[in-house]
Amino acid sequence: MRETMVLRKNKNMVTRVIDDETILLPIYKTSDEINSIYTLNRVASRVWKLINGKRTLGEIKKQILKDFDTIPEEVSKEMAKFLKDLKEIKAVV
């Protein structure tokens, strides 16, 4: 995870909060995506909210450390995994 990197959300990815759970819904689904749904845990949900095409990943990480009772290594690991997932489903560009 390069901390200077800035990510933008794909406009074709919709966020909904249903039953206190944040979910990502591609407007244009692939046939593989039709029977599944992407749900985010609390940290991932906060990271997703902070991605705005302006903040660097380093800034997002700092904010997560402020918001949650966790250590930098854990946040780096969790963010790296989440960002990989987001790229895989083309949720960020």
């Binding site: 249903i18 039953d19 759970e21 979910i23 990502l24 039709i34 029977n35 599944s36 749904i37 992407y38 749900t39 985010l40 845990n41 991932a44 989440f82 997932d85 987001l86």
Partner: peptide, 23 residues
Amino acid sequence: MKTQPYNNFWQQIHDTARKKGTL
């Protein structure tokens, strides 16, 4: 991020909506 089977998610939110009275 968790990729959930659609039916599991549906069951979960359906049960909660019934309890909370969410449309």
